[in-house]
Design a protein around this nucleic acid. Structure first.
Length: 428
RNA sequence: GGAGAGAUGGCAGAGUGGUCGAAUGCAUUCGCUUGGAAAGCGAACAGACUGUCAAAGGUCUCGGGAGUUCGAAUCUCCCUCUCUCCUCCA
């Protein structure tokens, strides 16, 4: 949620952001026009109310309250009518502003490169050129099925398209990846959380997902609960409606959860393999920090995610998303992309964003610098560290052997207890 | 799913129609005291909006909404949530 006061103060700034994000900027003038009317209506109503309160106070102070009440009743009745009329104007105006404001995306950081789409994202660094293979690498879905560790056919039988069954070494490897990610997050100071996977509408709204993923979410309509599309939601909303002590900051949380997405807008895209599933696992990192620390926090959060790829010795690159590709909540985003030799392309495996005060304002997450200080909004950041399914994909494709077997990355061996998956699906 | 109890400021907890945004205690902050600290004493201490250079001031909020009344934390109705017991259950 954008700050209305900021919009009022610097409308041109929002107009520029709208242009850079390639969305229409009419809403700026719409909001400002409604805001003028709203404030006028409020002032009028409040002045009348103050008048009435003064009369009521006179009755309270009178010795003969009954007499005073009888005497002032006509005046009060007249004020009442005018107050009702003045107040009636407020809710519709309020609702109009809320409706517009809650659909406006976050401001963009000045460092975000201009661009019209994902092709304009800027590579800021990489782990070097992807290695040249000595044989033709296969895509992970062929490898997985041949090894008997991923079963797409039976998943479809159980649940339809975009689901998968992991089996044997595949399931074990996946679990090891999660354990590895969580262990590293712990080492780096994150507090592990095991959150609910179903959250209320309020929670979902508070982190900005209800707009962004509105059609993309699975939900139970009876209880009006939503299945989380990412652990960002419960982790960020953990301190919703709280005023934190400054010495608690920064808060660093991690969680391993399944994520559920309808992928309604992705019909026909990535239909093969583990890349785009209705249900996938992810380890998420979330920071709550003081505003002046969020730039630095984004670098550290990104570095924490990046270190996992480096330790797994997977080829990757880091992208600064361009203005048109930065998502609704974020002011600035780094994507981590991993090289997939089976498909000869880089693929997103993590997205690390600084959401500044945008989610904090929706979720009312504040902190106080001093005992008597005014509450301020925290800045929230989130990033994947990492997407588990896509990590599995990357491992299969990058660590495949010519005979169809898989070598386990060294860093993972202590977590899964085997060093390879043989062509027949057994482990060594 | 059945029955009952409850929801007040950071916490605990008073307050059943009128100077109540709210006693008191704890916590916190500042001052006095002290060589320093503790104790003691004094003071400050909810959030939002509006207003101002800054103030003063104004409006709203005692889970949420509607109502009764000149006036509601207090009375009425609806909703939500929490707790306890029973039932069920990993």
């Amino acid at each position: 949620m954008l700050d209305l006061a900021l919009l009022r103060r610097e409308p041109d700034r929002m107009r520029r952001v709208a242009a850079r994000r390639a969305i229409g900027g009419d809403f700026v003038d719409d909001v400002l026009a409604i805001d003028v009317r709203l404030r006028a209506a409020r002032t009028t109503a409040e002045a009348l109310q103050a008048e009435k309160n003064a009369l009521t106070a006179r009755i309270s102070q009178a010795t003969d309250k009954g007499a005073a009440a009888r005497e002032l009743r006509p005046q009060i009745a007249d004020l009442d009518a005018r107050i009702v009329a003045a107040n009636a104007e407020i809710p519709p105006l309020d609702a109009q502003i809320d409706a517009i404001l809650s659909e406006i995306p976050n401001l963009l950081d000045d460092t975000v490169p201009d661009g019209a789409g994902e092709d304009d994202n800027v590579v800021v660094r990489d782990s070097g050129p992807p290695p040249v293979a000595t044989f033709t690498a296969k895509p992970h879905y062929e490898l997985g099925e041949a090894l008997g560790i991923i079963d797409f056919e039976r998943a479809t039988k159980l649940s339809g398209a975009r689901f998968s069954v992991l089996r044997g070494a595949g399931a074990r490897l996946s679990r090891a990846v999660v354990a590895f990610f969580l262990a590293r997050a712990h080492d780096r100071g994150y507090t592990e959380i095991a959150p609910p996977l179903l959250v209320t509408r309020d929670t979902m709204w508070s982190t900005g997902q209800l707009t962004k993923f509105a059609d993309a979410m699975f939900r139970d309509t009876d209880a009006d609960l939503f299945m989380i599309p990412t652990a960002e939601v419960p982790l960020t909303a953990l301190h919703r409606d709280e005023i934190l002590n400054a010495d608690l900051l920064p808060l660093q949380y991690t969680a391993h959860t399944p994520c559920f997405r309808k992928e309604a807008g992705a019909a026909g895209k990535d239909t093969r393999g583990l890349i785009r599933q209705h249900q996938f696992e992810k380890v998420e990192l979330v920071w709550l920090v003081a505003p002046e620390k969020s730039d630095e926090a984004l670098e550290r959060l990104t570095a924490d995610s990046e270190a996992l790829l480096a330790e797994l010795e997977l080829p990757y690159r880091v992208l600064a998303l361009c203005s048109a590709d930065v998502s609704f909540n974020a002011a600035r985003t780094y994507d981590l992309e991993v090289w997939l030799p089976g498909q000869q392309l880089y693929r997103e495996i993590s997205s690390c964003s600084n959401c500044t005060d945008f989610q904090a304002r929706r979720a009312q997450i504040r902190f106080r610098r001093e005992a008597k200080g005014k509450p301020e909004f925290v800045h929230t950041l989130n990033g994947s560290a990492l997407a588990v399914g896509r990590t599995l994909v990357a491992i299969l494709e990058n660590y495949q052997r010519e005979d169809g077997g898989i070598t386990i990355p060294r860093a993972l061996v202590p977590f899964c207890g085997f060093t390879s998956i043989e062509p027949d699906g057994t482990t060594r």
